[in-house]
Amino acid sequence: MSLPKKAILGILTDNLLNRGSVLPLSDRTAIQWSDGLDIPRGGETVLYTGHMYQIMPYLGTMANRMKAMENSWITKFMNLGRFVNRFINVSRFMAFPGKNEKQTYNNILRAIALLLRKGGVKYGYLYEDELYSGALIYDQGVDMALANHARRVRRVFEDHGVRKVITVDPHTTNMLRHVYPEILEDFDLEVQSYLEVLADADLENAEKSNGEVMIHDSCVYARYEGVIEQPRYLLRRAGFTVKSPELSGALTHCCGGPIESLFPSRAHEIAAKRMEQLRTMGDPIAAMCPICLVNLKQAGKNNDEVGDIAEFLARALLEVPGPKERVTA
């Protein structure tokens, strides 16, 4: 028995419309990563997290719970769950990620912010005013809810006078660069991924070789946004020898993540298949999307087999700990 799609999509949609995100986070959780970085509030150019990295520890934990629920009698009560969710945020009781896991994802955002700073890029941050982009709801085809939410996001940009957005993940990049302009009139912000910004920035090359790394291209970066060369260029400048699996670049293989919320077992099968392709050379694996990262990590033999590209770059260029030697923030 598969999970009840109607109830799950209903909960996700209700959350987006009533609480601003499919998986609502407290303001504190959303902005904690920026503690001590002194990023200016607002400005014409902003670093926009879209809450993706912050959501991942919760989404990963929740997906495991949902996987356990597949084929369970509990699924019969999910419609009731949707009803209750209108009054109480049910997702808050379904995911309790550990402190270390939250810190891992927060440290990735910190690494991105510091890399941009090192490259001389000036940017602000919207802090608690920042909103999730609605990517999951768009993918699931709930267009009415997405249009309502997109108008709220646009208002935030307008209120802060934002002209350029630097994104940190492929899904938010695609939403703001290609989807929003289709559904909102006159949405003409300049949108670039931090990987694109860094590739054009004034970053110094690493002084030493940092070994080999196997790259996992994100489907959305590679096939929706054409971001293929920039991550390789940055890794090479950071002293890594970049390896690509047979299915890479424009032919990259999905991590399974996009169906995690409705078909968690199937998603994990796809992730395991992808991990087999990636680990053939035995090198550390660099992902560049938080959804890929959480899925591949779950399919990995240990938590350090896969890291985010920002962690690799930060370790080489900022001399901060990389995926195998993280510190607490």
Partner: peptide, 14 residues
């Protein structure tokens, strides 16, 4: 189920 299980990865479309 098939429709919702598509990954939207665009491997086919590309």
């Amino acid at each position: 189920d098939t429709i919702y299980s598509c990954l939207l990865c665009k491997m086919c479309e590309a």
